[in-house]
Design a protein around this nucleic acid. Structure first.
Length: 201
DNA sequence: TGTCCGATATCCT
DNA sequence: GGATATCGGACAT
């Protein structure tokens, strides 16, 4: 029943590789003994200093993004538009402030609970967006800085040995970052599983 | 202390 | 397809 958890070394690799390899892994939040779990089907890479769409562009370092400068395998979560949480995994190697945004999941365990958190019965709308999946797995600011690789972690990523075939991995431009200018809003740093119905639209 | 605005979701027409 | 909700971070004053 207990699949191996992703170790620190998984996260402390080049961010684009981590973003791609997270596809097909299982995100688990054990809450009061109940497992809320979904398979990762869509991610985006935010490559720190050089990336105008990143919070740490140009080495910007503030109270909010301080976590990005810490070790890999930790959670960076913050609020946008006053109401939506964005879940990221820090990949920082050698103090480079980089991370991967989790954009969509396929619900796997604890679906009934997710429905109550999301206030909907439609499984297709449960976790197909960055704000939605945080609401479904009951994630918020209290998880900022959380260590996914701690042995006792209640929130972590499982590897169930599923290999996503290379031809099933699609990539394209990231979403909602036109403000960063064409160079960064057009670069193909978003990854998703081809034809998966839970990828965001 | 004040102003500006966003790595979105939802409701409305 | 378009408007807008809603709030805290960032940065200027």
């Amino acid at each position: 029943m207990s699949a191996p958890r992703l170790p620190r070394e998984f996260f402390t690799r080049p961010t684009l590789e981590v973003a791609k390899d997270l596809l097909g892994k299982y995100l688990v939040h054990e809450e009061h003994g109940q497992r809320l779990c979904g398979m990762i089907v869509e991610t985006e890479a935010y490559v720190g200093r050089e990336d105008a769409a990143s919070h740490s562009y140009g080495g910007r370092r503030t109270g909010r993004n301080e976590i990005e400068y810490g070790p890999g395998g930790h959670v960076y979560i913050y609020l946008v538009y006053g109401l939506h949480w964005q879940l990221n995994f820090v990949t920082s190697v050698a103090n480079e402030p980089e991370c991967v945004l989790i954009r969509a999941l396929e619900p796997v365990e604890g679906v009934a609970k997710m429905k109550t958190y999301r206030h909907t019965d439609d499984p297709a709308k449960l976790t197909n967006g960055p704000g939605k999946l945080c609401q479904a797995l009951h994630l918020n600011k209290s998880f900022n800085g959380y260590d996914l690789c701690d042995k006792k972690a209640k929130f972590f990523v499982e590897d169930r040995g599923i290999e996503v075939a290379a031809e099933a991995v699609k990539r394209g431009p990231r979403i909602g970052i036109d403000y960063a200018g064409p160079r960064w809003s057009k670069i193909d740093w978003r990854f998703w599983i081809k034809d998966n119905p839970y990828v965001s639209k």
